Amino acid sequence: MKSQTIRRWSAIHTWTSLICTLFLLMLALTGLPLIFHHQIDHLLGNAPQFKAMPADAPRLNLDQLIKAAEAHRPGEAMQYFAWEEDEPNGVMAIMAATPGTEPNSSHTFMLDARTGEALEMPSANGGFMMVMLRLHVDMYAGLPGKLLLAFMGLMFVLAIVSGIVLYAPFMRRLPFATVRPEKSTRIRWLDLHNLIGAVTLSWALVVGLTGVINACADLLITSWRNDSLAAMIAPYRDAPPLTQRAQAADLLKLAETAAPGMQADFIAFPGTLLSSEHHYAVFMKGASQLTSHLLTPVLIDASNLKLTAVVERPWYMDALGLSQPLHFGDYGGLPMQILWAALDVLTILVLGSGLYLWWVRRRVKA
């Protein structure tokens, strides 16, 4: 009975690994430069270059920044404004032909918060880093590509669990980290495969599970829109279309009053995926390393700048907010990025050695 159980787990490990290995190799290779995307942008000269100005230089208000963005891309609609901690003088702007245009067809650039000057961000609109991101996120296939990668992530998690089950009896026969140099090449690679797999076990599970959550982001956001957001904007269901927005100079102050102790992470303009046809959605973040990734949307009526609601944040949106930075090692600065990259390379070795072992075993059987 015991040998039959091991054979079943061995079959599960073999086939789940084979199904997902090529996709995971692609994800591991494309994920490696994405871990260091900020550093690569600076190295390639793609990062916006801000003018040197006094530290106390006054900043434009939100309404002035909106006008500067619209002057840079006339005829296009504002979709999002975002702030980044490593660009204190910049505001990221995203615009497109219509507010509801899908993200891959939008245009991203940076505004100097002191002057309103528009600074292009080549890597956000094309080039090497964008190719790596699209391959890693959806393989240029949109939602079907994301769901396929989510399925491959689940296969990866099942392959890890089955590998643990198979490695347990192996550990009882040999001390941990044993590599038998006197054995055949196949046995040495099997020992290395098991050793590196054990070393990367926890990381691989974290990256695999967060990858599945990230791949389902579109479905989670749609669920949030149909649940929490829909309940908040129900009184506007029969309202006439928004024809003119109120001046937004005080928008951030209103959001900070509604969510005390928090600061704005990004603004979704009316008509976008993360707002409604009649509202600004100001997504507020906490001050700690953890709460800075847990965003609370504040809905403000775009016609008169009156607070509509502070939208409930369901558990699955919290999971998504925590998964995105954890997946790419964005929590601990450069040391964590280096650790993530090293574990990524080791995972590539595990995947490659697994393919080699399967191929050699197949030839031996033949």
Rank of each mutant, 00 (worst) to 15 (best):
P74V: 09
G100S: 15
E85T: 04
R73E: 06
N61S: 05
A82T: 06
A57R: 10
S106E: 09
S105D: 14
E85H: 05
A93D: 00
P103K: 09
T101A: 02
P99D: 15
E120W: 14
L60D: 04
I66Y: 00
F50I: 05
A57T: 13
P54M: 09
W83P: 00
A93N: 01
T101D: 01
E76M: 12
N61C: 01
D63S: 15
R73C: 04
S106Q: 09
A77C: 13
K67P: 05
A118V: 12
A97G: 00
E87T: 03
F109W: 08
G45D: 09
K67W: 11
P88L: 11
F109M: 07
G75F: 03
K67A: 15
A47Q: 06
A71D: 12
A118Q: 11
A68I: 09
E84W: 11
T98S: 12
G116V: 07
N104I: 14
G75Q: 04
A71C: 11
A52G: 13
A47G: 04
I66V: 08
N89L: 08
M53D: 04
E85R: 08
P54E: 07
Q79G: 01
A47V: 00
P58N: 11
A118M: 11
E76I: 06
Q64E: 15
I66T: 09
I66W: 04
T98H: 12
D63P: 10
I94G: 03
N46Y: 12
M110E: 13
D112W: 03
D56F: 15
A93S: 11
E102H: 05
V91R: 08
G90P: 05
L119Q: 10
R59M: 15
G45A: 10
F81T: 01
V91P: 04
A52P: 10
H107P: 01
T108A: 06
S106D: 05
M78W: 06
A68P: 02
E117Y: 03
A96P: 03
L119F: 07
A93P: 04
P58Q: 15
D63R: 13
E76Y: 07
N61A: 08
M110D: 08
L65R: 14
P48E: 08
S106Y: 02
R73L: 10
K51V: 12
P88W: 12
G45N: 07
N89F: 02
R59A: 15
I94T: 13
Q79M: 09
P58L: 15
P54V: 13
M110N: 05
E76A: 03
A57S: 13
T98V: 06
P74D: 01
Y80L: 06
A113W: 01
T98P: 03
P88G: 14
P54D: 08
G90M: 02
K67V: 15
D86R: 08
A93Q: 02
E120V: 14
Q49P: 00
Q79F: 03
K51I: 11
D56C: 12
A57M: 11
A71F: 15
